[in-house]
């Protein structure tokens, strides 16, 4: 069997935070990503969902080497990326592109859209100089922006329009792997549908692989083949799309799915949901045992206080996995 396009094993990313005091070291370790593993095949989409702050963006940033992993392995096509030097990275930069969660912060305010889109083409010597602007205009059209606005600056666009500039820039290099961090969250549902359809079409045409980070579970359900649920730096459940949405196993996944608001006021105002009680845990000081246990409605069903004492391993069976002590 050939290696998957992307293979991530035991990835961790820890940040030291706090001040170094005169007499004592107050620095603490923040475990943003704490042992994440998954495979992603060509032509497939893996969704990553989970609580705000659970380490989704950090995982993606570690994959493209934006901040070096603390430990673990990231392989593209069998090549270990975590040990590459800056110059060795260049060819991979083109093959892996990322769409950032914060579109405005990732667009240079002094560059026009034209130069934002043609610069990567120039760096990677794609397309003849004369053709670059035409390519850029075609990309704008594909993401639903007016090609005639190509000479404008990022601040002249609305939030959702900027997000689409970021998408166009990532597509410019015709990557094999796209890391999409909340790529459609600033869009109205009609344009969102247009972009989701475009992503599906491009995937089919070029056999692209997507790592799709999103909070909108309906969009995740439409686009992803497989979904990974993260909680406090770890994967707590992973399953094929239909299995995950139809029979979630981990109590956190169940709570998450039950909290999705329904776009019908009559249903939305009467529906039942699992309310998570208890404080959101801190990656500076994670709870003992299963890190979800202080908020879990089922922890008391597991004998011997095991949830508070023992961290459940991610167990795989029948093509899906979950990390929970419940049988």
């Amino acid at each position: 069997m050939s290696a998957p396009l992307l293979r991530v094993r035991d990835l961790t990313k820890h940040f030291p935070i706090g001040k170094r005091g005169m007499f004592s070291d107050h620095r603490k370790i923040l475990r943003a990503v704490d042992g994440v593993s998954f495979d992603l095949e060509r032509g497939q989409t893996l969704g990553v969902v989970g609580e705000s702050g659970c380490g989704k963006s950090t995982t993606a940033r570690a994959i493209i080497g934006l901040h070096p992993a603390t430990s673990g392995s990231v392989q593209l096509d069998g090549v270990e990326l975590t040990s590459l030097s800056r110059s060795e990275w260049l060819p991979y930069r083109r093959r892996i592109q990322m769409i950032f969660q914060d579109p405005y912060a990732s667009l240079d305010p002094r560059q026009t859209v034209s130069s934002i889109l043609t610069e990567p083409l120039a760096i990677h010597k794609l397309a003849k100089p004369k053709e670059r602007k035409l390519r850029a205009m075609a990309l704008l059209d594909a993401v639903g922006l007016n090609p005639r606005h190509i000479d404008r600056y990022p601040h002249e666009f609305s939030g959702g329009q900027r997000q689409r500039i970021g998408i166009a820039r990532a597509l410019a290099l015709e990557p094999e792997l796209l890391l999409l961090d909340e790529p459609v969250s600033a869009l109205d549902v009609s344009i969102q549908a247009q972009i989701v359809n475009l992503l599906g079409e491009l995937q089919e045409r070029f056999n692209l692989a997507y790592l799709f980070i999103a909070h909108d579970l309906a969009v995740v359900r439409h686009l992803c083949d497989e979904v990974c649920v993260m909680y406090l730096g770890r994967v707590v459940e992973q399953a094929p799309r239909d299995e995950l949405f139809e029979s979630p196993q981990h109590p956190y996944t169940k709570a998450l799915l039950s909290a999705v608001p329904h776009p019908n006021p009559h249903i939305e105002r009467t529906r039942e949901r699992i309310v998570l009680t208890g404080d959101v845990p801190s990656p500076l000081d994670p709870p003992s045992g299963c890190t979800f246990h202080p908020r879990c409605a089922h922890a008391s069903e597991v004998p011997d206080d095991r949830c508070a004492r023992e961290c459940p391993a991610l167990v795989t069976s029948e093509g899906r996995s979950a990390a929970c002590h419940l049988p």
Partner: peptide
Amino acid sequence: GLLGSVPDLTGPAGDDLYS
């Protein structure tokens, strides 16, 4: 049109979304 473009959490998945 806007209300018609809302993706569904149930029903068939994977088809093109309306926009």
